[in-house]
Structure formats: C-alpha cells, structure tokens
Design a protein around this nucleic acid. Structure first.
Length: 418
DNA sequence: GTCAATTCACATGAAAGAGACCACGGTCTAGTG
DNA sequence: CTAGACCGTGGTCTCTTTCATGTGAATTGACGA
C-alpha cells in the first residue's frame, strides 16, 4: 500500500510535464501581452496625464470575457505606478476592484466598503447606513492631495441590482472633493451595457471608450505558444495540441482564459494518465471536464430550493425522453416535440417538497429560480405563448445526460426523491 | 370568412416582510484604587 | 472610577411573499358577404 502511494507520488514528481504551472493559471499576469499592444498603448495614452497629477478622462473598456481587458489595464496600472515620481506634490493611487467577486458581491455598500479597505480604511460588512460608508469614503479620500484612479471590473454585473445612481455619484464625486481628484475606469463584458445606462451616466463614464475584440484562432495559438514555452517542459506537446486548443476557445468567442484553462487541465489529465506528452485527445477530455466541473460546482453550491427545482426539471426531462407524457398541455400532436413547461415543473416541485417535508415556494419564486438556471446555462428557456393555452416558459435541459446523472448524485444528498 | 374581443397561464414588476447579521451608543456590573 | 458585559435601536443583506399588471396568440362570437 505504502509503496503504491510512493509510486504514485514519485511518478507525479518525476514525470511532471509542467515546468511552471502558474503560468497557465488565470491569476498569472504575464509581462507581455500579445496582440493587445494597440489597446495598451491607447489606455496608456489616455491615462498618462495622471503622471503629471492631472485628472484624466473617464475610460470605459468593453469586450467579451477572456479578451485581455483585465490583463491590459492591470499592466498599464503597474507601469504607471512604476513611473510616478516619488517627490511629486501629489500621490497617485490606482485601485483595481472586481465587482463580481462573491465577497464583494453586488451592492453599493459592499463596493464602497471594499474600496475603503483597499485604501486602508476599515468598514464592517454590515450594520452601517450606506450614507455613513459613503461619507467615510469621501473623508478617507479627501484628506490629502491625491489622484485616484478607480478601476471597476465587470460593472455590468452589479448594475442589475444597483441603481445607476451609484455610478452617477461616482462620476460626480469630483465636485464634492476639494483636494482629491478621481477618475473611473469601467470594464464590462456586456457590449450593450452602455446603451442600457442612464444617458447622464453614460456620457460622463465613457468619455473615452475602447473595445477589445475577441482573439481569433491564430492569435490564440500564438498566446498559447508563448505561455506553454514557460509552462511546460520541452517537447511534451503533441503536434496539433495547441491549434486544437485554440480552435476550441475560438469557438467560444475567442476566450483566451478558456484556452489556457483547457491547456492546463489537459496537462493535468496527461499527468494523471502517466503520459509524458499531452495528446490531442487530452484536450477533448479536458474540454468535457471543465464544462462538467463548472456545472457541477455551480449546482452543488446552489441552495436546496434551487436543487429541488432542478431535480424536478431533470426528472421531467427524463420522463419526456422515455415518452412518459405529462399534462395534457404537453401532449405533442405530432408526438415529436414534448417540451417541459413552467407549470409542469412547479407541480412536480410541489410533490417533491411535500415528500421531503420542505416548505413550498411560491410559483412566483420558482419562476425566478428557473430563470436563474437559464442564466447559469444549465437549462435553456424560451417564453412561448400557446394562445388560449396560456403563456409560459418552455424549458430544455442544457446539460448532457452524463452531467445530469452526476447532478442527481449531488442532489440526492439533500433530497429524498430518486 | 373576417375581425376584434376574450381568455388562458403564466411572465414580469414593485414593494414589502422575515430572519440573520452587525455597529453604535447607552446602561449596568464588577473589579480597582 | 473605569473596563467590560449586556441590551435596544436601527441599519444592511438575502430570500421570499404579496399584490398588480402585462402579454402573445388560440379561441370565441358578432358581423357582413
């Protein structure tokens, strides 16, 4: 037994195909960013005036995930901080904040709290009136002459919950500050985000705009090539691995992060296989694994009520697959289409709850839950109207059978149904 | 046959409540001099 | 006299419920050809 384990450990240590795995981790900040020179230069030239202590235009970056927005802005930030002169009569602070992080979450209060923390103050997680946090923020900022650049990553995520007043206040903050000047860099994944914004906010927030286009397959391949040189030992990549990787990611709107994940996971799988090379097939497996892990992770961290709803959706879609008919409504005349509707889900959900002696949520709530599953990509939803038959969501499971099975395993822990 | 009204079964919105968590300030208690 | 324990108030956050209003097209029924 002991030697078995020794063997496993030994082989992992000796045969590691990684040289430096961190390079492939998403947290890694490479010192050069291929194919983003133009954007970096533009950001730099827009933000450069801060080095003279002047307020710059507010900047707005947008582009899909994994197009290098965050990387670029962080890079420029570091460079700027390097260059700022020590003896200047002002101090420069550039704060990066990802609004979407679980901890920071999505309220005005928390964003302010997080900013204050980053600037060296401290705020309790809850308990204070928002207004108090707000004035604390201003106090903190305005006690010395300084220039502050706030980088708010993924603001689009937060704006669903927070009124756009917050951004408006932020952009108007300068008038309340006497010594300090502030400028805002917003980053959004959502290309249409700006259109939904209040015009006042829009015009002040995006005095300058910059679009990050997706990488194409060739560029992705180039990025992968550069990173893999540092990440892997010599010659562990089978011919075609990189291009396959790039192709996969290019299909997902040119997401470089995805490509790197893919490569890393493929490497891990190869190691586990005791293979000394990463083969093309590892990429395929990795692709499945990433998808699977992501979904299962989401599902298992979901609260019980969500799992119950999902349980009934899975159950229903299995029954449909087997040809068991639900309500009259879902009886497809042609016998081909046999979709699931909100009502079906709710009925079954009620049954499940009763069996498990759990409180039943309102239909209103379940409706929202279903919509959230849609946003998570676990199901696909379409609102259809069946004329006099009513109006409802048509629900389709968007995960493979295999994942559905695994999901059932997870849900089984907290539910007594199957 | 045609056309507008009706109707279904929810979708979608807004507001507000419950319960958990927490800060702050005041009051009480016990230990100290 | 003072530090610390203990409470009450008022705040935020998340998840829900309640009440209201919206909605797309099949169905209905009145109407006219």
């Amino acid at each position: 037994m002991g030697t078995d384990l020794d063997n496993i450990f030994d082989s992992i240590i000796k045969n590691s195909i990684f040289k430096k795995k961190e390079v492939l981790q998403t947290s890694h900040n490479p010192e050069n960013i291929p194919h983003r020179e133009k954007q970096i230069k533009q950001i730099a030239s827009i933000l450069a005036p801060v080095l003279r202590g002047e307020r710059t235009s507010n900047l707005f970056l947008y582009g899909k995930t994994g197009t290098g927005k965050t990387l670029s802005i962080k890079y420029v930030k570091d460079e700027l901080l390097k260059r700022v002169s020590k003896d200047a009569d002002f101090s420069l602070k550039i704060e990066y904040l990802n609004c979407k992080l679980k901890k920071v979450s999505d309220t005005e209060y928390r964003i302010l709290a997080e900013l204050i923390k980053k600037l060296g103050g401290s705020v309790p997680d809850t308990g204070l009136p928002t207004q108090a946090v707000y004035s604390k923020f201003i106090d903190l900022i305005d006690n010395e002459k300084q220039l502050i650049v706030l980088i708010l990553d993924e603001i689009d995520q937060t704006m669903k919950k927070i009124s756009s007043d917050f951004l408006y206040n932020l952009t108007r903050l300068n008038s309340e500050l006497s010594k300090t000047q502030i400028c805002v860099v917003g980053i959004s994944n959502n290309l249409t985000f700006l259109d939904e914004l209040d015009p006042r906010v829009r015009s002040s927030l995006s005095e300058e705009e910059l679009v990050f286009p997706p990488y194409n397959a060739l560029q992705l391949q180039d990025i992968l090539k550069k990173r893999s040189k540092d990440a892997f030992k010599e010659g562990v990549l089978e011919e075609g691995v990189l291009s396959k990787c790039a192709a996969f990611a290019a299909r997902e709107h040119g997401d470089a992060r995805r490509a790197l994940d893919l490569l890393r996971v493929a490497g891990e799988l190869a190691e586990r296989d005791n293979s000394n090379k990463i083969l093309v097939k590892h990429i395929d497996t990795a692709n499945n694994k990433i998808e699977k892990d992501k979904i299962l992770d989401v599902i298992s961290s979901e609260p019980k009520q969500f799992q119950f709803v999902l349980a009934s959706i899975i159950q229903l879609s299995e029954e449909r697959a087997k040809g068991i008919r639900g309500t009259q409504r879902s009886l497809g005349k042609d016998g081909k289409e046999d979709p699931i509707f909100t009502g079906d889900v709710y009925n079954l959900y009620q049954d499940i709850c009763t069996k498990n002696k759990i409180d039943i949520l309102t239909q209103r709530r379940v409706s929202d839950i279903i919509q959230e599953f849609d946003m998570l990509g676990i199901i696909n939803v379409r609102v259809i109207s069946k004329g006099r038959g009513g109006r409802m969501r048509e629900i389709k499971l968007a995960i493979t059978k295999e994942i559905a099975e695994k999901s059932k395993e997870i849900i089984k822990d907290s539910i007594d149904y199957w």
